[in-house]
Every structure is written in C-alpha cells, then in structure tokens.
C-alpha cells in the first residue's frame, strides 16, 4: 500500500489504576526476505522491526518484530492508567521510515 496509515484504539479516559487495553494496527507488507519473485530472485526483506510506545515521552512498552510477524502487523497490549497525557506510538521500518501516531488519555 502506497500510504502507511497506523490505527490505534485506546480509551480517551480511564480511572486511576485501571488496566487499559490498547490495540494497534499498521498497513505494511512485512516482506520477510524469504520470498522470491517470479524470476527467482530473492525479494529483499522490508519489515517494521520496532514498535515503541511512550507516555509523556517516557518509554512504557516496546516490541522488536521479526519477519515471522504477519503482514499488517497487529499488536495489542496493556497499560496501567496512572497519569494523564500523550501516548506516542512509533513504528520503525527497515528502510529507515518512521510512522507515528499520538493519542491523549485522561486519567481521573
């Protein structure tokens, strides 16, 4: 897909101490490097290799992804709501591209 567009589903509000689930999805072929094209030449690897999540600039969760992750990678995880602010989601592509999405959360 020409344009990479991340999707993030996170609650806008949470109670103090509540454990919230966050779901993320990004469109990416996750070319494994194991495949060959129609003329038999290997197709070079190009995957999202890293996914970072920060709350107010402080890293709270991250994943190293390998070629075994399916196309259009989906990652769901949890956070304990203890602080309002901005959640920043960052996907790192093998080609150096970085895709980012931000969601605000209000903890009361």
């Amino acid at each position: 897909m020409a344009k990479i567009r991340p999707r993030v589903k996170a609650p806008k509000k949470a109670a103090m101490g509540e454990i919230i689930e966050i779901k993320t999805l990004i469109n990416h072929a996750m070319e494994s490097g194991q495949r060959k094209d129609s003329s038999g030449n290997p197709i070079p690897r190009r995957i999202i290799n890293r996914f970072d999540v920060a709350l107010n600039g402080r890293q709270v969760f991250s994943v190293d992804l390998f070629p075994s992750i399916s196309a259009n990678p989906y990652v769901a995880f949890f956070l304990k709501a203890e602080e309002s602010g901005d959640l920043t989601f960052t996907w790192h592509d093998d080609d150096g591209s970085v895709y980012e999405e931000t969601k605000s959360i209000e903890v009361a």
Binding site: I19, I20, S32, L55, Q59, V60, F61, S62, V63, D64, L65, F66, P67, S68, I69, S70, P73, Y74, V75, A76, F77, F78, L79, K80, E82
Partner: peptide
Amino acid sequence: VARFHFTPESGTASASTRMR
C-alpha cells in the same frame, strides 16, 4: 517472532499479535 519489552507501568505482562 517478536520480543516484547514491558515496564511496571504495563500493569500486566500480556500482549497479542499475529504471526506467520
């Protein structure tokens, strides 16, 4: 497949993904 890094702020060490 994937290496997940948690922190105490994760609340629970659980995650989901999809693999080949």
